[in-house]
């Protein structure tokens, strides 16, 4: 799987720290994600995984340390922030689709208003992506009329329509009923093989074993251990990793 990457660093995080009021959520996270790599992050709730990937596209502001995305440093400079955001797509646990717009309008909103694409071009791209995620017939429906799995696939398509170089996934299947998890994971697997850089927070170990290049274990705001999935799951080095894995692996 690591043939996908050409070694170029897409995301560089150095000693990233973040506080929420008195509580330190990130205690010096450092890692590098290379182009085409698929990185899976696991860890107990409250360990800072979600906070970390949200600092990458400035949904949270990091207090210390350095974050560089595709050569652009993430600072308080609006221009940098906007350039970085245009290269990153994010998929949320709760989908966050716009309920008052149809599916196709959800997809075309950003390209038409941020990139100023003409309507026809945006709709064509939307149609292609809906096919790619497997639900082209749902284009004119409203999100509330779709199942959870379909909604999340629309969310993935919406993120993809801006042609990002990096896709972030914040527990994309945690809010889904079990029978719908597979359809979303299938789409994500297809994305992984297509060469896009992905950072995925998930509890789906099967997915990690199949497509991840690297697995990171977060606990208490730090990366406790990382490694290729083969080693990580069968032979973890750290004691805490072993404890965590024993709790989630059946």
């Amino acid at each position: 799987m690591s043939e996908r990457t050409n070694g170029e660093a897409m995301i560089v995080a150095e000693d990233v720290e973040k506080w929420f009021a008195g509580f330190q959520a990130l205690r010096g996270v450092s890692t590098t994600v290379r182009r085409g790599e698929v990185v899976v992050i696991v860890g107990p709730s409250g360990s800072g995984k979600s906070t970390f990937i949200r600092t990458i596209n400035r949904l949270e502001r990091h207090d210390k340390g350095r974050i560089v995305v595709d050569g652009i440093e993430l600072t308080d400079d609006i221009r940098n922030i906007e350039r970085i955001r245009s290269e990153i797509g994010i998929v949320f646990q709760s989908f966050n689709l716009f309920p008052h717009l149809r599916v196709v309008e959800n997809l075309t909103l950003a390209p038409r208003n941020v990139r100023r694409w003409p309507r026809a071009k945006a709709e064509e791209k939307a149609r292609q992506l809906l096919e790619r995620v497997g639900i082209p017939e749902q284009a004119r429906k409203y999100p509330s009329q779709l199942s959870g799995g379909q909604q999340q696939r629309v969310a993935i398509a919406r993120a993809l329509v801006m042609e990002p170089k990096i896709m972030l996934f914040d527990e994309p299947t945690s809010a889904l009923d079990p029978e719908m998890i597979k359809e979303v994971l299938d789409v994500m697997k297809e994305l992984a093989t297509s060469g896009i850089t992905m950072v995925v927070i998930t509890h789906e170990i099967g997915f990690a074993k199949e497509v991840a290049d690297r697995v990171l274990f977060f606990e208490e705001g730090r990366v406790v251990e990382e490694g290729p999935p083969g080693e990580f799951f069968s032979n973890p080095r750290e004691e805490r990793t072993k404890q965590f894995l024993s709790q989630i692996l059946v």
Partner: peptide
């Protein structure tokens, strides 16, 4: 919901 703001911002909407 807060998520609507986040999704919009993440998509690059001013």
């Amino acid at each position: 919901p807060e998520g609507q703001y986040e999704a919009a911002r993440a998509l690059g909407l001013r």
